[in-house]
Write a protein that binds this DNA or RNA. Structure first.
Lengths: 350, 350
DNA sequence: CTGAAAGCGCTTACAG
DNA sequence: CTGAAAGCGCTTACAG
């Protein structure tokens, strides 16, 4: 019967049915068991090609789509992955979000956006993961505390981590540029361009990305016999960058500044100009991120690229593979820091 | 018994249980029916204060949290709302996302990020809504086609729409600035500042935001007896803005330009300077959005504000109210366009 | 490879 | 107000 009359149920219920075809109806129309329908839609399930074909045909005829919530409940595979993000003032996040969501779509994964701005503790996130049967977490947040990351680690929740890249024996899947290498590159570049007193504006204290790049920066410069110093910005905003730069300028004695992010560098750039100093002659500037805005002619910032597209894709692909093979070992994708040459750096001495 | 032994089930299953307490266990510990536990957690359910208190106590003791997936399946209230977004190159979206997700958290709603960039048809979105029992849609996308919006409308899916604001008899909940008023304000401002040949760089043809602002712009200028013209950018990117501006400049005969977005205006600004013309003396510029970047000293763009925080919050709050009262009628929140005065406009004639 | 059955963790008409 | 029961739409050991 084409009208799909289902065995009389005692009462009409609302549920999420939404007037949509259910697995049971497909089973009846195809003349198979419900289990067969389920198997037909589950890759790797034990089912013959013939049976599967029959099911698929009936399903298409009825416009059937498995209800993922029910599948998640029954089988634990909701297809939901939580994107933990903060730093909503940094356009780089938007880019990451764009790439990550596109990659997820390719894997049939659905992104839940977990805004961890402010003091979202790991426990809060963990609760949501439980409440919704979220399968994995994608950490897209540079501002995550060590405590948070350790919490995720211990919880056993699957995850991948952008903004983290320790090539040796990673504790979890991660992808990123190694901050220390970026900092070394910046330091070496300043030296090569003839700057003699480089400084660094690092991110706010307490961030996981603070110590490593600062070390890379000072160590390299020490080795080259150049003076150097590191100050912190109070946040990642351009304003914070401008204030830090103003402070550096007030103390004199610096002619090049590496900023831990492009947002910081953009603020610093404004501060340098406001102080009547010339970029890149008086002051050289290197950012870190290569935001779209950094390429605008008004900004035109020399910076170290952070390959957001590759990193987002790598993390999502890893999560998708992990889903098919839970025994997968953590891996790291380490991108090389790359200098994007624009106008805030003197050219190399010839 | 504190160990919560549950009646012997025939087999161990994995499910999403995750080792977490279930409703049944709470019921047993509290010595009440499962229904009572469910009711205790559902505002407005028929349950005595005494019973509820007893349940809540047991629940807290066990660290119980209702599984939202199961609740969604059984009751149709998943708490999931889909954010339909595109334009991931525009930082304004990130801002909107930030405000919307924060507002949702306040209502216990969870955001699913639906990236509609490219050609995501309404049918695709509808499928996801079904698959996951998404309760409502928040349209945060300026680039949605009329077809898409009509599809949502007809589908009966609940939604709220940012970037839309027709005060009279709204067909659905919407919030935004009326483009036509923004365009009129820009036109009037140019006239007041003594510009004599204003032009407008509108968004790409085909966008829902094209015709209305263009009309507002030209009509106002016609009435004031000033020449005017409208060109389209090929996209919303700064590059597209720069190309449109270059085109305008090449033809001469314009001394002020209203851009349909700040991203466009930022590109236009670069093009004006690249052509060796002075802003705001030779060419006045007004953008639309008031992005964070527009306030950077290097940009310092005069623009018409789009109150993203209020708009995002309004939409989310509406969705939350609609959830509690499905009979709620659609409403519109119309924000007044407001000129943010910066350096790309001559000052008023004295 | 298949099907019947139990179960995932909740909700809600129904009958007190 | 309460509880027993049926149901939401799927999955997966179990026993062929």
């Amino acid at each position: 019967m084409a009208d799909g009359a289902v065995g009389a149920t005692r009462r009409k219920r609302q549920g999420t049915s939404n007037g949509k075809t259910t697995l049971r109806e497909v089973a009846e129309h195809a003349g198979v068991s419900p289990a067969a329908v389920s198997r037909a839609f589950t890759p790797g399930s034990p089912i013959s090609d013939a049976l599967r074909a029959r099911v698929i045909e009936a399903a298409e005829g009825l416009g059937y789509r498995p209800n993922r919530m029910a599948a998640g409940l029954a089988g634990g595979r909701s297809g939901l992955v939580g994107i933990v993000a903060d730093g909503f003032a940094d356009p780089g996040l938007l880019d990451l979000l764009d790439h990550a969501t596109r990659a997820m779509k390719g894997h049939g994964l659905i992104p839940i956006l977990l805004n961890s701005e402010g003091q979202e503790s790991f426990e809060d996130i963990q609760r949501i993961v439980h409440d919704y049967g979220i399968e994995a977490l994608l950490l897209l947040s540079p501002g995550l505390s060590r405590r948070f990351v350790q919490g995720v680690q211990k919880s056993g929740i699957r995850y991948a981590h952008a903004f983290e890249a320790h090539s040796a024996d990673p504790a979890a899947a991660q992808a990123g540029v190694r901050d220390i290498l970026a900092a070394r590159l910046a330091a070496a570049t300043f030296a090569e361009r003839g700057y003699v007193a480089p400084a660094m504006i690092a991110g706010p204290e307490g961030t996981r990305h603070f110590r490593e790049p600062a070390n890379g920066f000072t160590t390299t410069l020490d080795r080259l016999g150049l003076p150097n110093r590191v100050v912190h910005a109070e946040s990642w905003s351009p304003d914070a960058g401008a204030r830090a730069m103003a402070g550096l300028l007030a103390q004199g004695a610096c002619d090049a500044v590496f900023c831990a992010s492009d947002t910081l560098a953009i603020g610093a750039l404004g501060a340098v100009r406001a102080a009547g100093r010339a970029v890149p002659e008086d002051i050289g500037l290197i950012g870190y991120d290569d935001l779209a805005a950094s390429a605008w002619p008004e900004i035109d910032l020399s910076t170290i690229a952070f390959p957001r597209a590759e990193i987002a894709r790598y993390c999502v692909d890893f999560l998708a593979r992990l889903r098919d093979d839970p025994s997968l070992k953590p891996e790291a994708f380490v991108a090389e820091p790359l200098l994007v040459e624009r106008s805030t750096l003197r050219s190399a001495r010839v």
